[in-house]
Design a protein around this nucleic acid. Sequence first.
RNA 1: GUGGUUGUAGCUCAGUUGGUUAGAGCGCCUGAUUGUGGUUCAGGAGGUCGCCGGUUCGAACCCGGUCUUCCACCCCA
Length: 450
Amino acid sequence: MSNKKPNTPKGTRDFGPAESAKRNHIISSIKAHFLNYGFSQIETPAMENLSVLMGKYGEEGDKLLFKILNSGDYLQKVSQEDFEQGSQHVLPSIAEKGLRYDLTVPFARFVVQNRNDLAFPFRRFQIQPVWRADKPQKGRYREFYQCDADIIGTKGVFSEVELTRLIQDVFKSLGYPNYLIKINHRELLFGLAQWCGLATKEIQFCTALDKLDKIGHEKVTEELNNLGADAEKLVQLFDLLGQDWNNMQKLEGIEALLPENPGIETVKTYFRYLKDSGENVSLDLSLARGLNYYTGIIFEVVAQDVKIGSICGGGRYDDLTGVFGLPDVSGIGISFGLDRIYDVLEEKGLFPDSLKVSAQALITHFDEKSFVHGMDLLSELRANQIPAMLFPDLAKINKQFNYANKIDIPYVIVIGEEEVKTRVYTVKQMKTGQQHSLALSELIKLLKAE
RNA sequence: GUGGUUGUAGCUCAGUUGGUUAGAGCGCCUGAUUGUGGUUCAGGAGGUCGCCGGUUCGAACCCGGUCUUCCACCCCA
């Protein structure tokens, strides 16, 4: 290991054949459900203008944005005054683009730009990488994929129900049952904040409350007290949160505190529409989610038996396009975290074995004559939609078999003098060791059977 | 961004108070096997001990820096 040993940048990874196959397994499953729900795919550039990205994810988000240096002499526009005032003042002069931080904001930009060509409500899905300059940890990468589905241009709670069912369908088809869909409503959170006497500090209230299951109610109480919350009301609040209630009981409990809150009716309707399919759905009044633009119901999906944070998140935003000049468009979206779902499936051993197969058959040979004959057989197999390879070098037969074994090829076809003459091929099933002599039509039938 | 942690062969890891030529298992290559892989046996290759610097007669080991990994904050998918 010399100092020349190359490496990918911190928090980024390569995906080899095995990993790519597993990732594709997840992507194709999610994509199939997106299509089944009527979403159309779009793609947007990896980079956006910083004016599009800045200020959309809160102060923290701005720090985590990767900025791209301007081309050419990027210091040219920096004035002495900017430089003396520090990096904050230099930034606008040296970088005007950044890597996208999520898929929702670029989508809002896309909607505004293409508003006249889109039919609303518009359902789009998007599967692309995003970048965050976070400090990497397990399940936290600097480059990771999001799989987003958004419905924009409708306020109906039915959209929330659609996305809930979509989540359920996806995890069902991935074979992972131990997830929990936590939901809450920003109006409820804001109502609670005001009720506690934190009318101007709703966001701080949310982020403090969000830590409840992590640091416990004493510490959260302490934080909220420091913000200036009404101590008596906090006692009432934590009394409510501590109850082991079902969703309806929780709703009734919070309705008693906030009788006029518009979020109550919305959440009630949501559960009514869900009917009996709300099995993995839980109203969690402490769920906050950091992103500033959410205004209505918010979602978070957690893996209950893997320590990895949330694997899917989303919510309703009433005015995301407003900042780009298109007001009064309500949208709702969810984002599946491909990389974390991967980590969950990997840890739980839920990837199917069949993903390993690289080709159905490898054609091996003893000499050049049989090698050349193998080329024709290869074409025949491929013409019959049988993924096949011909060993490309003249090599010892055991080397060829060894290769097939290593890359998990199920069938090896052997061609020698005899096979070329008779056109009856020897085929060995690697898993069982069984061997047959078959003419082409029989061979195709066998290889297609699997 | 703050604090901590990790790094030795392709992989998982040993390595004594600082002392010749740094080891094991697995994997890899060759042969037993010129019509058969996965089992077995024999042999072999592969390391500037993450990198740079310092202390020392002498450093995988001690010190500093740096990169990387993971963890706790922060925040999030």
